[in-house]
Design a protein around this nucleic acid. Structure first.
Length: 427
RNA sequence: GGAGAGAUGGCCGAGCGGCUGAAGGCGCUCCCCUGCUAAGGGAGUAUACGUUAAUCGCGUAUCGAGGGUUCGAAUCCCUCUCUCUCCGCCA
């Protein structure tokens, strides 16, 4: 949710900025709604003032034992009028909030203007992609060759975009997740959190997945419905919903390892092979809740925290800044980490770190008490993957593959591998 | 799944149709006293919106959510959600 002041004061400038994100703000519609809202609301308030005054008089008259009938007669049809106006106002407000809740965040000044992923800007690279002196296999071939990755059985159990892993690969997958989680807790001071994987509608509204991205979510048939979380960002960020935080409790840094569930509607043809894009995947997620003046610093820190995972795993990657057209709904600025995938001969997204500023905080009423003003103000929230576990597995498998189809285990994972340092068919 | 109890401000907790935005306490802020890692006295201390250049002030709303009764609802009625207790079931 944008700061309402932006809409009230500089709507044309705002519309201009939103256009860079591919969103067209209907300023005439908004302003006409806002005018109607204002006039109805002040009408209602003055009717209520009348009603309150008269009711107070009745109360006093009764207390003094006077006859209240003359006052009652003067009430007229206040109630009816009020009801009528309130119905009208309700309609307007529903339209207004429907409009407001679908407006994306405004991109930060530093975000490159662009249309799609073509216009993203590379910031830096780390590591040098390994040269293979044998034909590389992709993770699907490797996994199936090892007999530890089974897409056929998964599709029988569930459908497309699922996988069954066994033995060493299943263990490697688990080791990756535990390594990341422990690393962020130990090295970066995050608070480990275990969260609900099913959340309610309001929680998804708070982080911005609803109402606009309903079709991307898995939803149960219960009433009210539960939604499967598309990312732990949702429950982690909403930990502070409806709260007024003391200044000295900030910053908060949360990390969680959870499965994530996505319908992947609208990406039917994309990445249909393998583990890159699944309906269910695991991710270690970082969330920062910070004072507004700290959020840009926090974005750099969070990005470096994600990078440190790839560095520890010695996986080559690059950092890019998403352009205005490629950013998510809630983000003011996003750095993507892309890891080298040898079989595709390119870098692929493995983490996305965003400063959301006050956009989510406003939706979920997450505030802090600013000592300078003494007033509650929206906090800033950030989220980032630290990192996607499934894609990390893909990256490790492909980058650490050997000529015989076995996979060496990165040293950093040793503590979680129970002595297994090479995944082979026999494993 | 069955039976019962409850949901009030940063927290605890009264109120159960009318000057109640809400007693009292705790916490916090400021002042005084005291002169020392303590205690006492006084004042203040919700949020949103509107009005305003802004503050003060004024108006409106908010006592889990939504609806209803009434001139008037934190208080009465209905629906829902959540929490707690007991029973059942269960990882």
């Amino acid at each position: 949710m944008l700061d309402p002041q932006l809409l009230k004061r500089n709507i044309d400038q705002l519309a201009e900025k939103l256009r860079a994100r591919g969103y067209t703000l209907d300023t005439d519609y908004y302003q006409s709604l806002e005018r109607q809202r204002k006039s109805l609301q002040s009408e209602i308030e003055s009717l209520q003032e009348q009603r309150n005054r008269i009711s107070r008089q009745i109360g006093e008259a009764k207390a003094e034992g006077r006859d209240i009938q003359p006052i009652l007669d003067s009430v007229d049809d206040l109630g009816g009028q009020l009801k009528d106006r309130k119905t009208g106002l309700g309609d307007i407000q529903r339209k207004l909030s429907a409009l407001l809740s679908e407006i994306p965040n405004v991109a930060d000044e530093s975000v490159p203007v662009g249309r799609d992923e073509q216009d993203n800007v590379e910031v830096r690279r780390w590591g040098v992609p390994r040269r293979f002196d044998f034909p590389v296999q992709d993770h699907v071939a490797l996994g199936e060759g090892l007999n530890q990755m089974d897409y056929e059985t998964a599709s029988k159990l569930a459908g497309s975009r699922f996988v069954v892993m066994t033995c060493g690969l299943a263990r490697l997958h688990r080791a990756l997740a535990q390594f990341m989680l422990d690393f962020h807790v130990r090295e970066h001071g995050y608070v480990e959190v275990n969260v609900p994987l099913l959340v309610n509608q309001q929680t998804l509204f708070g982080t911005g997945q609803l109402p606009k991205f309903e079709e991307d979510q898995f939803r149960t048939a219960d009433s009210p419905a539960y939604y499967l979380i598309p990312t732990a960002e949702v429950p982690l960020t909403n930990l502070v919903a409806d709260r007024i935080l003391d200044a000295d409790t900030l910053p908060l840094r949360f990390v969680a390892h959870t499965p994530c569930f996505r319908r992947e509607a609208g990406s039917y043809g994309k990445d249909t092979r393998g583990m890159i894009r699944q309906h269910q995947f695991e991710k270690v997620e970082m969330v920062h809740i910070v004072r507004p003046d700290q959020s840009w610093l926090a974005l750099d820190q969070m990005t470096s925290h994600a990078e440190s995972i790839l560095q520890a795993l010695e996986l080559p990657y690059r950092v890019i800044t998403l352009c205005t057209g490629d950013m998510g709904f809630a983000a003011a600025k996003t750095f993507d980490l892309e890891v080298w995938i040898p079989s595709q001969n390119q870098y692929r997204e493995i983490s996305s770190c965003s400063n959301v500023e006050s956009f989510q905080a406003r939706r979920m009423k997450a505030r802090w008490r600013n000592p300078a003003t003494g007033k509650p103000e929206p906090v800033h929230t950030l989220n980032g993957s630290g990192v996607a576990v499934g894609r990390a597995l893909v990256a490790v498998m492909e980058n650490y593959q050997n000529t015989d189809g076995s996979i060496s285990v990165p040293e950093a994972l040793a503590p979680w591998m129970g002595g297994l340092d090479r995944i082979t068919q026999a494993a």
